[in-house]
Amino acid sequence: MTPKTTKRPDGRANDELREMKAKTGIVKNADGSAMFSFGNTVAIAAVYGPRKLLPQHLQNPEKGKLRCYYDLASFSVTERKKPGPSRRSSEISFVTGKALEPVIRLDNYPNTVIDVYILVLQADASTRCAGINAAAMALANAGIPMDEMVTSVSIGKMGDIIVADLTKEEEDFTIEKNGKEEKAATDIPIAVLSRSKKISLLQLDGKCTKEDVKEAVQLAKKVSSKINQVQMEALKKVK
């Protein structure tokens, strides 16, 4: 095996996450809210509900509905983002909902809806992961029955190393090949349930082998407990 040569730009160890910060109860009018940040990536989430689902034909008498809305603030990225839903944000809203749904006991709230609004205030890659972490905390803060927490982290392949929690710089990592710049980074956002260590989100953007994915999942499971620790500490800090 060849020695791994690539180094991370900020000098972190391969399994080291950026500094994480978390806080709950930040949106006064919401039933539950939280902030979660990975370094420069900051996401806030607000939960409203369970509340009545209207129009009535959308109601499900068997179980409640979870609606997720993810968006970037227009000032969160270097180039101004046009506000409002886009192709990208509606996809992320969908996968976030799918990542959170398995832990929420929606059958306790028939005919109702739980709305989760995620807003990214600062984007430096891994925004959907920060969003999921914040949303899980906001749901817990809203007193909604959940089997466990959801933690999420983006694992990436950068050149020949597998690293945890990519930054924008690492996401755009390139290598020179035949005198040409070539994209050499792969981004794999993964959501891991805190207790059962099941996977509720796995996306992949870039090139990598089967072994790489396996390694990425292992790494995500390993760092998930660190994220959960931060979430738990923030939730328990009640004034």
């Binding site: 039933d31 509340r51 803060n141 809203a142 007193g143 029955p145 959940m146 089997d147 466990e148 207790r195």
Partner: peptide, 23 residues
């Protein structure tokens, strides 16, 4: 295992979680 965010209430042998927030 807890299923809610709240205060732990251990009465005799019954464990309950009293919610602190929510609708």
């Amino acid at each position: 295992v807890s299923m809610r965010f709240g205060l732990l209430d251990m009465n005799d042998k019954l464990i309950k979680v009293i919610p602190l927030s929510g609708a």
